[in-house]
Design a protein around this nucleic acid. Structure first.
Lengths: 110, 110
DNA sequence: TTGTGGTACTGCGCATCGCACACTACTGTG
DNA sequence: CACAGTAGTGTGCGATGCGCAGTACCACAA
């Protein structure tokens, strides 16, 4: 808490990030985790992603299907449905507005 | 939770916002609340601000002094100390980096 | 006087959410 | 067989924003 913590910044944004990486291609949890880390969210925990996926599914933003893998355990794929795409769009707007407000607050005055 | 919630976005950022509005002028809680709402964080709760101020003070980022008011109850002013300015600077950098990552993720591909 | 509204702060308890941790389970390799 | 990598589930914790109740002070109205 003394140092700057990235964890709290993720609150409410991880949903959006997960929806975003599912925009173009379906994905399963472990892969989504890799996508997010590659994208720059390097400190993300695995349980956070799995939890978020379950939450988004429960909220009706995702569809899911299980694909057995011959090179490991089964993979539970998730895909955006129309509600998810709407949510991604609206969430993105809210985020941009919020980020804009914060940037204004944080801009150096000189 | 069905609609887009601003509350979660504030997590970890409210600290930064409060430090930011204290950058140029000392302030007391009720006034800081107004500054934040004016700046665009319109849905912020009063308890959130008071709590954040106590937390930032406990963390050693703020100094405080009480000023009696003749037109209402006393006002507990807060001011940034050097540690607070450092935190504001570092936090701002972390925020910008994080926001940049999110913007990249959210950018429309076409 | 009593009451009402605005100002200003405190404290309690709740809900959300990211996360650490432990566990299960499947595959391939040494 | 042991072990590492992959893939998922479940539990409980900690941090934090927030709603709400309560306290207190002032000004003004009925």
């Amino acid at each position: 808490m003394l140092s700057v913590d990235t964890t709290q910044l993720l609150k409410g944004v991880l949903d959006l990030a997960v929806l975003a990486v599912l925009r173009d291609d379906d994905g399963y949890g472990y892969d989504i985790l890799r996508r997010l880390r590659t994208a720059g969210l390097t400190e993300i925990g695995d349980a956070s992603v799995y939890g978020t996926l379950r939450r988004l599914f429960a909220a009706g933003y995702l569809t899911t299907y299980v694909v057995p893998s011959e090179e490991g355990p089964h993979r539970k794929y998730y895909a955006l449905n129309p509600a998810g795409r709407t949510q991604l769009k609206q969430g993105g707007e809210v985020w941009r507005e919020f980020a804009s407000t914060m940037n204004t607050l944080l801009r150096e005055p000189a």
